[in-house]
Amino acid sequence: MTDASDLDLIRAHVAGDRDAFTELFHRHRDRLWAVALRTLGDREEAADALQDALLSAHRAAARFRGDSAVTTWLHRIVVNACLDRIRRRQAHPTVPLPDGSRTDADGRPTGVEPAAPVRDHDTALVVRQALAALPVEQRAALVLVDVQGYPVAEVARILGVAEGTVKSRCARGRARLATLLGHLRTGSDEVAPASGVPEATAGNRRPPQDVRSGSGRSRHGTVEEET
């Protein structure tokens, strides 16, 4: 069984092999866990989302057509489960815009992942908090592309959107992170970084408070959205 391909395991599962899907799970569990944990920022949520997703995949395996990699399919289900959870818990996202305003003044992202074994703990904590403040679609795209290192085309398949949309989500997410992390200098204003997200680097500055970000314009071609 260990030599079987992912597709073989899916086929075996669909054919009634009770161990095949579990083998598939163990084969990819750490990667899926990393995606879920970094997207949700909370171990318990990540565990629940993964369980939901894997049970859904287990149930729907027969509908996997094999046109893409099994891992892509699994990632897509896991990411969707994560996004669903985030949407449910964030009725009012706390997203600082580049101008420093907030969509919700009283809230702050919750469920930050507990202390992680990273080399620079402070940076890790700050980055996690900043990511948690992003719109969920931007967060998911950034986690997959910039943190997990998946190619944009692969992420587009995982998220079920056009590549241009992935690029847009990442680009806008990075720009917001630049604000949240205090890297977006104005040259004139020296203020504290956006509340809820400490500075990653001492001396970084917050952008001016009255800079307005226009809403996303209509997009041609591959860019489909954003706010």
Binding site: K167, A171, R172, A175, V211, S213, V223
Partner: peptide
């Protein structure tokens, strides 16, 4: 400035 549009531009979107 449309910062989202600018971000899209910088990000190649």
């Amino acid at each position: 400035v449309d910062h989202d549009l600018l971000a899209d531009y910088v990000g190649g979107a």
